[in-house]
Write a protein that binds this DNA or RNA. Structure first.
Lengths: 218, 218
DNA sequence: TAGATTGTTAATCGATTAACAATC
DNA sequence: TAGATTGTTAATCGATTAACAATC
């Protein structure tokens, strides 16, 4: 029940953080919080928090603040975490295996339903109770299970081929860990990129920049 | 040799992507490119690309465009990739191991100099030629090697303790994979967060939102 | 030179912050 | 009721886009 229709990605990207903080507050037994207190903890302005929340509805009470538990649940619903969208993971290398075992997909709105790799050394192994299947099984699996999202942990050379194949199998959303941008041209595709290299380079710049600033001041 | 001093993070975060595309173009034997061509490939405006680059200098030639190879190197230098900052990784669980073996730190401006864990089952093992050391060795190691960056792959309960300890050992920058925000209060700390859960939740929202839009239209 | 494309200034757009009336 | 804090409108700030003169 959004009040507005086009919520900007800037707002959306802050919601998981709100959700996380609120769930911790709840765990710690905090029952109510004001936008000002929350803004202190998060390093944002109270104004921004109220603006963000009011994109979706008036969750607070004037003169009182927000009920932690309730607000947390509301944000969870806005994000759609209860949906448990069916996902598959393709590429059970180092990173793929780590993602499969380390992430709590359930808590983030997904169910990991299948893992695929092409290496005979990996096929048949299990990660967190899920068997690694041959990529050749993709077609059969997708027809039966109809997953809606694919985690891409394949090497960059394989990204284009595999993403197009998955598109043909009805998958319209990708969580992409490969070092290259998914190039599926179809307009109805959602891609969330996790470019670890880009993130690391950004950190490098910040370090370099700080050093330069310090140098200049001396 | 930046022309301006305060480059916004919006600009910085686009640089690694430019760098990546240009290095591919270079590999593919492309020698020159115009901002318009580049903007097509990247899904940005030509204006934005020229604005971004001109924060740092005039790297192009009027009437001609940019020399791919040269521009790529310039961006690499802006990012500081040649620095090879010394880094350590703390927490050799699933994710930590994957990061250590999967990432090419060298290409992104860093050298991975040490890996630390507290589990006796892991200490002594090697990841990509680097031995996993006991976290108790941190003090000795840091005094000797003076790393400037730490990759945090520890569970959330440990983040605060470990980050403060690393701060005391002179580390001022963190690449944080733990599900919680690094809370080091000191102002001279640089934190680059990789919140995989947040990313996944954002993807969940986008899927939910698209489904709702489709429903409304029917 | 003519054509192309940059570098840069000005205009627009969107996101954040400030202010305050509404109201619990 | 008085005090507090929201929801919301208006003001500001920053980032993106458009336009064009400079120049290769």
């Amino acid at each position: 029940m959004p009040k507005r229709d086009n919520i900007s990605m800037s707002v959306i990207r802050r919601l998981p953080r709100y959700h996380r903080f609120l769930s911790h507050l709840h765990e710690d037994g905090v029952t109510r919080i004001s936008s000002t207190e929350l803004s202190d903890k998060l390093g944002l302005t109270a104004s921004q928090i109220r603006q963000d929340l009011n994109c979706f509805g008036g969750f607070g009470q004037q003169g009182y603040g927000y009920i932690v538990d309730q607000l947390c649940k509301e944000i969870g619903e806005i994000l759609g975490l209860q949906n448990q969208y069916k996902a598959i993971l393709v590429g059970a290398g180092n990173l793929g295996q780590a993602i499969a075992s380390h992430m709590n997909f359930q808590a983030d709105g997904f169910t990991l339903a299948g893992i695929f790799d092409s290496s005979p050394f990996k096929i048949g192994n299990r990660i967190g109770g899920i068997e690694i299947l041959d990529v050749q099984e993709l077609e059969r699996f997708c027809e039966r299970e109809k997953p809606v999202m694919a985690v891409l942990c394949v090497p960059r050379e394989a990204v284009n081929e595999i993403s197009e194949r998955l598109y043909r199998l009805g998958i319209r959303s990708f969580w992409n860990f490969s070092h290259y941008d998914v190039a599926v041209q179809f307009p109805d595709v959602i891609v969330e990129n996790v470019h670890l290299n880009d993130s690391l380079m950004t950190l490098c710049y910040q370090i370099k920049n700080k050093a330069q600033q310090a140098e200049k001041e001396s």
